[in-house]
Structure formats: C-alpha cells, structure tokens
Simulated scan of single mutants.
Amino acid sequence: MIIIVASLLMALAGWPVASVEAVGAGFTVTPQLPANQVGGNKGYFDLLVKPGTRQALTITVANQSAQPKTVKVAITSAFTQDNGQVGYSPSSKRDPSAVVQLVDLASAPVTFELKANEGRKVTFFVQLPDTPLKGQLLGSFYVTDETAPAADDQAGMSITNRFAMVVAIQMQTTEKRVAPHLNLLGVKPGNQNDQAAVLATLQNDQPRLFGGMAIKASVTRDGDSKPLLTQDADKLAMAPNSSFNYALFTKTPLVAGKYWLTLTATAGAYTWRFHRAFTIDAKAAAQVNKGARLAVVRPFPWWWVLIGGLLLIALGLLGLLFWRRKKDEGTK
C-alpha cells in the first residue's frame, strides 16, 4: 500500500508548509523556492515564468532514519482521479485537450541512495515553450522510498506500507486565469470500485485548476418520470486539461434499454448543465453486472409464511381437541 502525503492542494487548500513529512515515512521533502515564486512560501512551487526559459526546480530530500534509503524523484503531470480529486502520482492518463504537460518539459526521473540522517538537494529543469502558456501548467515532484519495505502483520494480514511525498508545481506565464469549461464526453455503463454504475465522463478542456465543484445527477429510464439512479457529490476538484468518470452507482443489476442522464455541475460562479440520452445493450449490461458486487434481491418467501401459518393453525386445533377430550374425560 502506497501512502501519499501532499503539501497542498493549492487553491483547494492553502496551508503554508515548510516541508512534507509523515509519521513512519522516515524522510522529508522541502522545496527550495526560487525568486520567481508568487505569493511567498506556500509549501509548493507557484511560479511566474517566461516563455523560452529553462526553469530550475530544487528540493531537499532528507533521510531521518538510522538506516540508508533508496529514493526515487520524478516530475509528474497532474490529472483528475475518478473520485473527483486531483492526482499527482505518475500516470499515463492524458487528456486530448492538453497542448503541453509538465512531464513533457521536465528532466527525467533520478534514483539515488541516502545514508542514515543524510540530506541532499536535487535539481530538475523545466524547458518552457517559446510561446506563452495559456493558463496553468500543473504537476508535482513525486518522491518515493524505494527501499525494500518491511511487512506489517496486522490481525493476520500482511500490510506493506510504502510512502510517497508530493510537492506540487504550478507554472504560469501570466497571473491571469482562464475560465474552466466542462464537457460531457459520454455516458456508458461500467464498473468502478467493483460496483456497477452509469459513468458520465466529464472533461475540463481548459488549462485551469479549480475546486469546490458540486454535482447533482440522475438517470431516468426513457418514458419514466421517477429517476432510477441519483448521485450527488461536493468538494470535487479538476486538474487542468483533464477528465474523469463520475459514477452513479446501482445496487441492482443494470437492465438493457434507453435512458436519460441529467447532470448539473457548479463551481463558484460557473454552472454546467447536461441532459443526454444513452442506451445500454444487453451485452454491456451483462458484462457490467458480472464484474460488480450487487445487492442480491430475493423475493419475500410468502409460500413458507403460508405453510408456517397453516402448521400453526393445525397445531392449535390439535391442542384444542386434546384439551376438550381431557376436559370431557374429567367430567365423567
């Protein structure tokens, strides 16, 4: 299990952090903020950069344990996870709306060993495009302890904890922010977290990080007025030029047919509304239902209740006859 510790979520959480650390991790990561940092020490890189320049980014990785550690440092591009939060781990997920991503411009990952209680500065370089950036370039330093971890046996289960530290990197060539924009790319049945769901793929096609998003969504079978599925969420966030699958979960098997998705997303002053028809065919429904944990719906056992009731009545009658016979014998 990898435990990720982040220094920020920038506009989503603005805690000033001098270094990133976690109990049990045994190492810290501290950003060395350059002169073009915007807004002082936020615990992450928030840089105003110039087109065509080579930006140096330096962090200090310190081993706080009494044992040597093997550490890997990489620069990653931000993306939106299917839980509606910004992710900074290494990922091949790339939205077609992204003209350029941070990982395209940065130095390659490096791996090195730290002695016990040793600290080391690590510098990466980002080569900015010659043309000004439209909006934000967002990613992170992603630092992992590659030392072979010891397994922790808890309640008969072997749990292996590995730690990753994240220090975000945000770059802009102008402090002006572009407005976010949502598209509904598609609606389909699918599985998420081993649950059957209708998945609405939402895309932010602009280079703008934003949070505080709330979604209200429902799925209605064609011809019905009452929604079959509803799913509401808040405090969601999206990375620049990214997409994710918003899931409307079902506890009962999906059935083939035509449906309508109604979805409203709001974030600050921005509102997006979608109303989209989609079809679930029998093959897709069977495939999704097979791979999901569904609530087992069993009919109420009326026959057993009836039989049990008749048995109770019969036993009652037999008892009454037995009592009457005993009473008659006693009066003779």
Results as ranks from 00 to 15, higher is better:
2 I>K: 13
2 I>T: 13
4 I>S: 11
4 I>C: 07
5 V>A: 12
5 V>W: 01
5 V>I: 11
6 A>D: 11
6 A>I: 04
6 A>Q: 06
6 A>C: 02
7 S>N: 06
7 S>F: 01
8 L>M: 08
9 L>F: 04
9 L>T: 08
9 L>H: 04
10 M>I: 13
10 M>D: 15
10 M>T: 14
10 M>L: 10
10 M>H: 14
11 A>G: 13
12 L>D: 02
13 A>W: 06
13 A>Y: 10
14 G>H: 14
15 W>H: 12
16 P>V: 13
16 P>M: 12
17 V>C: 12
17 V>Q: 15
18 A>P: 12
19 S>T: 10
19 S>W: 04
19 S>I: 01
20 V>P: 07
20 V>R: 06
21 E>S: 15
24 G>S: 02
24 G>R: 01
25 A>N: 12
25 A>R: 12
25 A>K: 14
25 A>L: 13
26 G>Q: 15
26 G>M: 14
26 G>P: 14
28 T>K: 10
29 V>R: 09
29 V>D: 09
29 V>S: 06
30 T>G: 12
32 Q>M: 04
32 Q>V: 06
33 L>F: 09
33 L>S: 05
34 P>A: 02
35 A>S: 00
35 A>N: 00
36 N>G: 04
36 N>E: 07
36 N>H: 07
36 N>K: 02
36 N>W: 01
36 N>T: 04
37 Q>K: 06
37 Q>D: 07
38 V>S: 09
38 V>N: 06
39 G>P: 00
40 G>L: 12
42 K>G: 08
42 K>A: 02
42 K>I: 00
42 K>L: 06
42 K>S: 05
43 G>H: 05
44 Y>F: 11
45 F>Q: 10
45 F>E: 08
45 F>G: 07
45 F>T: 10
46 D>T: 00
47 L>P: 05
48 L>M: 02
48 L>C: 03
49 V>G: 02
49 V>H: 03
50 K>N: 01
50 K>R: 08
50 K>T: 03
50 K>L: 05
51 P>L: 05
52 G>I: 11
52 G>P: 14
52 G>C: 09
53 T>A: 08
53 T>D: 03
54 R>D: 09
54 R>V: 15
54 R>E: 12
55 Q>G: 08
57 L>F: 07
57 L>H: 06
58 T>E: 05
59 I>Q: 03
59 I>S: 06
59 I>F: 04
60 T>K: 11
60 T>D: 03
61 V>C: 11
61 V>W: 09
62 A>T: 15
63 N>A: 13
63 N>D: 11
64 Q>F: 01
64 Q>K: 07
65 S>H: 09
65 S>E: 15
65 S>Y: 14
66 A>Q: 08
66 A>T: 06
66 A>I: 01
66 A>Y: 03
67 Q>D: 13
68 P>E: 00
68 P>A: 00
68 P>N: 00
69 K>F: 03
69 K>N: 04
69 K>W: 08
69 K>G: 07
70 T>A: 07
71 V>K: 10
72 K>P: 12
72 K>M: 15
